[in-house]
């Protein structure tokens, strides 16, 4: 499926190329505009890696800070900053997941009884968010059985909605490689899911 264009505040007057150039020159206001334009996209990108809305929000915030730190590299591919933003956000999510795993291991050793903090959530759609997280966790678990290279390309194209060309930019591989990996990952995933169904 292609990701929908969530909450993007796109002014016709300001292109991503303009924003990239202003970011590179250290324009603080451009950082705000990039955030306004892409916050939801990066938020959902991070959710698809963390399967947790709260973790995704933290990761998104960290990702935009990282974007500012590496602003000198800001580049719009094919007129969009998304591939570059996803590259930065992907690194942040990976680091966060590593930290979470270490924290989880420590917590397991300490036998901490985790309270269900969700009951304190003010949002009316707590149940929906929990459902989202459960579903996303299942999907992440499914694709995690693929090799890393195949998984990356599948997620970028099928979940994040990038074109083959944009995914190639993010992964720094030729477009042909994206196509072949995508084909292989789809086949492999279907095979894995069929096997899972049979085992149930």
């Amino acid at each position: 499926m292609q990701a929908t264009r969530l909450g993007i505040d796109e002014s016709e007057d300001v292109t991503d190329d303009d924003l990239a150039a202003r970011l590179r020159s250290g324009d603080v206001d451009a950082m705000g505009e990039v955030y306004d334009r892409f916050a939801d996209r990066v938020y959902n990108f991070c959710f698809r890696r963390t399967a947790s809305w709260s973790a995704a929000e933290d990761a998104m915030a960290a990702a935009f800070l990282e974007v500012w730190r590496v602003r000198a590299r800001a580049t719009a591919y094919d007129g969009t900053l998304l591939p570059w933003l996803y590259t930065v956000a992907g690194n942040v999510c990976r680091n966060q997941l590593r930290s979470q795993r270490r924290h989880a291991a420590l917590r397991a050793k300490l036998h901490v009884v985790e309270e269900d903090v969700r009951v304190a959530d003010h949002a009316d759609d707590v149940a929906g968010r929990v459902d989202d997280e459960r579903r996303m966790a299942e999907l992440v678990a499914a694709v995690s059985r693929l090799g890393e290279r195949d998984r990356e390309v599948l997620v970028l194209v099928a979940w994040d909605g990038l074109t083959y060309e944009q995914a190639a930019q993010v992964l720094d591989v030729p477009v042909g490689t994206v196509r072949s990996r995508l084909s292989r990952s789809r086949g492999r995933l279907a095979e894995l899911m069929d096997r899972t169904e049979e085992e149930r």
Binding site: A39, E57, V143, A158
Partner: peptide
């Protein structure tokens, strides 16, 4: 996998504004 529903949401207005304020404060300080 393409047929799987991948959940998507928008940031809440409160979270969006709070994170933006934090970000811009950090950026301006930097």
């Amino acid at each position: 996998m393409n047929e799987q529903h991948v959940p998507e949401r928008r940031l809440s207005d409160e979270a969006r504004a709070r994170r933006r304020t934090e970000l811009m404060a950090a950026v301006r300080a930097d």
